[in-house]
Design a protein around this nucleic acid. Structure first.
Ligand SMILES: [Mn+2]
Ligand SMILES: [Mn+2]
Ligand SMILES: [Mn+2]
Ligand SMILES: [Mn+2]
Lengths: 220, 220
DNA sequence: TAAAAAATTTAGACTAACCTAAAAATATAT
DNA sequence: ATATATTTTTAGGTTAGTCTAAATTTTTTA
């Protein structure tokens, strides 16, 4: 039996909310993420449990089964590969591709995914720095720091974003911050935790805590 | 209001069955093409008529309105552009792409289509020789001949196929007949109308009437 | 041109995915 | 340890798209 568009979305969202430690996901959290009501979520959870895709005990929240995890990772692989295609081949901005990839990720056909992957040169990361699962379903989350964890004087590489909202990505564009940028923290304001950060050895910018919390970086 | 996946399919099929002269399409023909029952078609026709996408009078068959035609042509444009992408960029065979394009054709986003079109170099024909509507919705069907209309001694160019079935396309592959092949009709068998056809000045093959009827060609 | 056949529509149901409102279970706070 | 608040589930409905069976209209045949 094939999984529906909707079922795939639930699995993907459970995967995201469950995190690497596979913590239980609540009905309300899913209602929020799927933009539906808790009652609708309960209906779907019963269905996904019947299909063996999630572990579900009433009132106890859900986690993915191995089978559900597999499906979720396939969808994530497709989503991220299509995002690479849209940015690298079609010339979209990284702020424009998420919604289109939300649709493309549900196109079936294993062979399509593998040919796309080859066409793109087997990329390891998507345009937002998120890792792309391999064909076998291995997904390894690199352990990046958040910019707020970086001390004054340290130089780090910008590796990804936590917030994928177009407005946030556009803000980074205007600040000249892209994947691979070198960020040196020059000063941290005691009062509001805003930071002065030098970008690629060039201009120094003020970065609010709100922005710092969403920047994934790596020591060099 | 957006049109659903299903509505788009109905419009596309009505367009195909209605032909260039815009003849009425019957409920049964649509049931056949959509692999549904006549009663289901009637339901959908009422809906499409309510949305102003088709002309529908009970028992009289349907035709597209200008508005419905526009939608149908957009879907056809997307279908054929994606087929070009799959063959030219991903390396699929022309016999493998139709079903995948059936899914991709429903991905929304005008800008995606236009960027894809540009990426592909604004192709005029899809891998089966079918013309690709332009961004404004102009679709001009070239008036090709069918191979059965070609007389002995004539040389023609292979320009397209009427049957898109994988088995037919694979048969052409095995015969060495592709878009652009030069076909010279050497002999036509009186009894079964099979033809001896020389391919690209090379080997001469027997071609059954069944095959001839599905080959679109052009005099040079 | 009336009867028979074929095509089409209507009537009544079903499933997937959603909803609101009410009931039940769990968690929190006095 | 209750009472209150929060979360989750259940009950009962809706819509889109499908179905079968029956009724109706159109077409064909005699
Ligand atoms: Mn995304
Ligand atoms: Mn991404
Ligand atoms: Mn096709
Ligand atoms: Mn085609």
């Amino acid at each position: 039996m094939q999984n529906s568009f909707t079922e795939e979305n639930y699995l993907k969202i459970i995967h995201a909310l469950s995190g690497r430690d596979g913590v239980e996901v609540s009905t309300n959290a899913l209602a929020e993420s799927t933009s539906t009501r808790a009652a609708s979520v309960t209906d779907m959870l019963r269905k996904l449990a019947d299909k063996g895709l999630i572990h579900y005990k009433k009132y106890q929240g859900v986690t993915l089964t191995d089978s559900g995890e597999k499906v979720a990772i396939k969808v994530i692989r497709k989503h991220r590969l299509w995002e690479v295609f849209l940015v690298e081949k079609l010339g979209f901005g990284w702020d424009e591709v998420h919604d289109i990839a939300e649709e493309l990720e549900h196109i079936p056909s294993e062979v399509l995914v593998e040919k796309l992957d080859a066409f793109l040169g087997h990329p390891k990361f998507d345009p937002h720095g998120d890792p792309i699962p391999d064909a076998k379903g291995n997904l390894t989350e690199p352990d990046y720091l958040i910019l707020t964890d970086v001390h004054v004087g340290e130089k780090v590489l910008m590796m990804g974003v936590l917030d994928h909202a177009p407005s946030f990505l556009q803000h980074l564009d205007r600040s000249g911050i892209t994947l691979g940028s070198v960020l040196e923290v020059r000063e941290i304001n005691e009062y509001d935790k805003s930071a002065s950060v030098q970008i690629n050895g060039g201009p120094t910018l003020f970065i609010s805590l709100e922005v710092s919390k969403n920047l994934l970086v790596q020591r060099r």
